[in-house]
Write a protein that binds this DNA or RNA. Structure first.
Lengths: 307, 307
DNA sequence: TAAAAATACTCCATAGGTATTTTAT
DNA sequence: ATAAAATACCTATGGAGTATTTTTA
């Protein structure tokens, strides 16, 4: 592979068309430039300049190379700046995984703010469930994930930043008798069949929900399992059962489903809530991730302790 | 500017993620590679690899550089081949000037044949009158020109290849009384007013035409001058006069104009004809021009002597 | 203990410098 | 006679090699 230095010498000489001046611009003397160009021509097997003692002209082959070489030099020149931008987090690439629930409000505004501040960063967004995100993080396939968990139960062994806290609501088919009431009593809800995600996909929240039933001396009746919140709401609409869902699921606007708050009767356990956290592997330390966190919704800023 | 060698070492190490193997692939030993990468990181001021005694990983900044560096290397790798293609005439650029009369039949088929054989060449075509072409050739702004001249009067001081020989026809407005005859007598034509190009733009042909008149003891009556053949034909259609034009001008398909052969009566001088030649400056010797001439219409091949 | 990166040093290839020659205007 | 490229020869930087040390899994 031909050295950069030679291409730079070629480019300058092609501009100056004068060995002396070109050498001056290259901070060297004329003889080594003569030899360098001769060497370049020798290795290419192509005459690039037409020397006529008194003047230097490009051959057609030489002229054809000029734009290509200039492109090469421009690219090479830009590389250090790119590297530095990537190191500062104002360039490079940021790969984020997110759960569908954040895709409607939280993520769009966050992305908008980030792109305005750091247009040089290529954002790669992939939707994935929480457990898939954790695998991807472990394999280094993404820089961070946005996932749901029960308050105080952010994934272990990872750094995290809580960006949203929301109550769980009950999703019901719109013609269900309980929809008559604006706030439901927990005791009325417990016997109803449930649509719920499998425990493996979101253990902390699954445990919080089933724990709620067990502390009331009941066992939840699982009518159907589904992984995506979107699917769960669709199944509720199909009247397979009720579902506990984060409040932000209301954004899905699925017709045929209504959402209700549930009131814990008497001294029952606190009703489960849900947090959304940005999680990442500490060691991966992508500096761009720090820039991303600067753009987190204001609610998160106060909570930058591990939640 | 950072050396090519360093970027190649970076690229290979980024692939192998192992100093020993990378060094092997680079045909060197491990220690200098370690130092080279350390030097690269030092000059960039950016850590590119995360070394943990037992394994090497890319930092996010390093990962961000990989595609850019690969692009750089691909470009650099391709340059020698480009140079060689340009030197062989199968690449690079060919700038041709042509007169409008060849733009209808001769040039399109020629270009088609050339592009089929040498797709790597960027053809730059500009329409220009003959005298403008000669200036452009002298300034090195085009590699060759296609222009008209009187037989045996190709521009002096230039190389040329005759690619077409055609008679001059007389263009008349369609309602002109002479159009009744299918072949005109020269004596009938000589008194008619003419539309003709200025002598400066095409001296040899201008002289041939005026010479025809003078050898019959007449002076041509110039009704109007115009440079482009297209314009001349338009002016004939506007009934400003008749015009001597190369037969290929019939391709213009201008309505309101008809073309007639003229018969020299008795012992008069031979009727003027017209040649189209490819002309170029010998010294410029663009190898691509040789490829272009290989594709010249077959009629030209036999006439590759200076015409 | 073994595998891999880092360090220390040595050497030589070559990029660049100086002096000079050639050549065409 | 002059300006510019080519040639000859010299110097020294630094890229690559060998030998060795360090480190952690």
């Amino acid at each position: 592979m031909i050295d950069m230095r030679l291409w730079r010498q070629f480019a300058v000489l092609a501009q100056e068309l004068h060995f002396g001046r070109a050498a001056q611009r290259l901070h060297m003397t004329q003889p080594p430039l003569t030899q360098a160009i001769a060497g370049l021509e020798r290795t290419l097997g192509v005459r690039l300049f037409e020397r006529t003692q008194r003047s230097v002209r490009l051959t057609p082959a030489g002229a054809a190379l000029v734009p290509q070489v200039q492109q090469l030099l421009a690219l090479a020149q830009a590389l250090p700046a790119h590297a530095q931008a990537a190191a500062a987090g104002t360039g490079g690439r940021l790969r984020l995984a997110f759960v569908s629930t954040v895709g409607f409000v939280l993520l769009p505004s966050w992305v908008r703010a980030f792109r305005a501040l750091y247009p040089g960063v290529r954002l790669e967004l992939v939707e994935a469930t929480g457990d898939v995100q954790l695998q991807a993080l472990a394999r280094g396939e993404v820089d961070a994930g946005l996932l749901l968990h029960s308050p105080g139960h952010a994934p272990v062994g990872l750094q995290s930043l809580c960006v949203a806290h929301e109550p769980l609501l009950l999703a019901l088919p719109q013609n269900h008798p309980l929809t008559q009431q604006s706030v439901l009593a927990l005791a009325d809800v417990l016997p109803e069949p449930l649509v719920i995600f499998p425990r493996a996909s979101l253990p902390s929240l699954h445990d919080a929900i089933t724990g709620l039933y067990r502390s009331a001396g009941q066992e939840p009746v699982v009518a159907q399992e589904a992984i995506q919140m979107q699917t769960i709401v669709n199944l509720v609409s199909s009247e397979l059962g009720l579902a506990w869902v984060p409040a932000s699921v209301q954004q899905f606007q699925r017709t045929g489903v209504v959402y209700r708050q549930v009131q814990a009767t008497g001294s029952a356990a606190a009703l489960p809530a849900c947090e959304t956290s940005l999680v990442w592997v500490d060691s991966s330390a992508n500096p761009t991730l720090a820039r991303w966190m600067e753009c987190a919704p204001p609610s998160a800023q106060a909570q930058s302790r591990p939640c």
